[in-house]
């Protein structure tokens, strides 16, 4: 993870576009400027970044399901629950699944576990937009490569 760059996901562990499910991992760094303020003497991952992590896991899933033809943009967060704290050094395992794929939008459910224990979950809504420009498309290709996006999963 590079929190300051919103690089929340480190690695795609499993992507199943047929079942519309994904598992990813994210290693929380031991140090970050974010932890200097959140909180001094008791650093822990901000809840909004846990939600962002679940959104990004869902986003990679939707990119796969949509074969990189649309870019998912977070539109709504529902039922988000932070059930336990996530600390520097924790390895987060995130699961996401598509609940509904509509016309121009999709809904997912996502969970974060640390050491097998559920730490957060949420229901998320995304709008699915055409890539606005080649820069963004190129950036997402680079990000996908960084996290080991399995290109064979979306090949015809």
């Amino acid at each position: 993870m590079q929190l300051e760059y919103f690089h929340m996901i480190d690695r795609i562990v499993d992507l199943n576009v047929d079942e519309k499910k994904i598992v990813v991992e994210a290693q929380v760094p031991m140090e970050s400027t974010i932890f200097e303020g959140h909180f001094p003497g008791y650093p822990l991952m901000p809840g909004v970044l846990l939600i962002e992590s679940m959104a990004q896991a869902s986003g990679f899933l939707l990119l796969g399901v949509l074969k990189f033809e649309r870019m998912p943009i977070l539109a709504a967060v529902k039922e988000a629950k932070v059930r336990g704290s996530v600390f520097p050094g924790d390895l987060m395992s995130l699961e996401a699944s598509v609940v509904h794929e509509g016309s121009g939008y999709a809904m997912t459910e996502a969970k974060i576990r640390v050491g097998g224990k559920l730490r957060a979950n949420s229901a998320l809504t995304f709008t699915l937009i055409p890539f606005p420009n080649s820069d963004m498309r190129g950036y997402m290709d680079a990000v996908a490569k960084r996290v080991g996006f399995p290109q064979q999963a979306v090949s015809p």
Binding site: S103, Y105, M107
Partner: peptide
Amino acid sequence: SLDFLDIAFAIDKAFGIKLPLEQWT
């Protein structure tokens, strides 16, 4: 438009269809 996504979701589920919102828009 955002609230309408929730309505579209519920309609899709209730009727077993997919409202073509993108086409309509």
